[in-house]
């Protein structure tokens, strides 16, 4: 099952990346994050069939609950509360973004397959997906000038970390769980509180109003 499903899941993660990076609206992006979160939640079950089943189930449930439900809900609520414009304020156009997504995904597969420093029992597919996701997450933070969009970028980056952490899910499940909790605490509670603060002071969520401290 592992051999059959893993490439497809990885491909789906990459596609969700492309969807997120090329959407022009916050709600679409959040939808992409939901899809990605669900795909990631399935990963531990596929990667480690039969090993430490209870932990993998816990991971799956936590993943679905946090990445698939709580986090997106909370984000949606935030953007509804502050009633901001739903544009993501791209610094770089969508077509180039899509291009970038494709290129980095290809590069990730190429790099992971080329460097042979990883131990044998590691699957190149999910690592490539992790790398590609990291590229997208960083890109969203850099190239989108909307605060919520930057948070989404952070979440995507977190997903990359989560994917990577699955490598040690069997030996150190605690670490993976901590990574998921990071989503919840860091990404959502803190950052959305920050968003509320920003909105109450600036009446906008564009990063443009947050560029006064220079030098």
């Amino acid at each position: 099952m592992k051999e059959n499903l893993l490439p497809w899941i990885s491909l789906a993660i990459v596609l969700s990346n492309l969807y997120i990076v090329s959407s022009s609206r916050l709600t679409y992006q959040i939808r992409g994050v939901v899809v990605q979160g669900l795909l990631l939640s399935i990963l531990p079950l596929i990667l480690f069939p039969g090993e430490d089943f209870i932990h993998m189930i816990i991971l799956f449930v936590m993943g679905v609950a946090i990445k698939g439900i709580i986090v997106p809900k909370y984000l949606l609520k935030t953007i509804q509360d502050v009633r901001v414009e739903r544009e993501v304020h791209p610094l770089i156009g969508y077509s180039f973004s899509l291009f970038y997504g494709v290129i980095t995904a290809g590069l990730s597969f190429f790099l992971i397959n080329r460097i042979d420093i990883l131990p044998d029992n590691f699957s190149p597919f999910h690592l490539s997906a992790a790398l590609a996701t990291a590229f997208i997450g960083i890109y969203l933070i850099i190239a989108r000038r909307n605060v919520v969009s930057q948070i989404i970028g952070y979440l995507v980056l977190e997903n990359a970390g989560f994917t990577l952490s699955l490598s040690v899910a069997v030996s150190q499940p605690l670490f993976v769980e901590m990574g998921i909790l990071l989503d919840l605490v860091g990404g959502i509670f803190i950052m959305t509180i920050a968003v509320n603060h920003i909105y109450s002071e600036h009446e906008s969520l564009s990063v443009k109003s947050l560029e006064r401290l220079i030098q």
Partner: peptide, 13 residues
């Protein structure tokens, strides 16, 4: 707030 936002986003990454 701007300082906090930058602190959060940069340090979180």
């Amino acid at each position: 707030i701007e300082a906090m936002w930058k602190y959060l986003i940069v340090c979180s990454v």
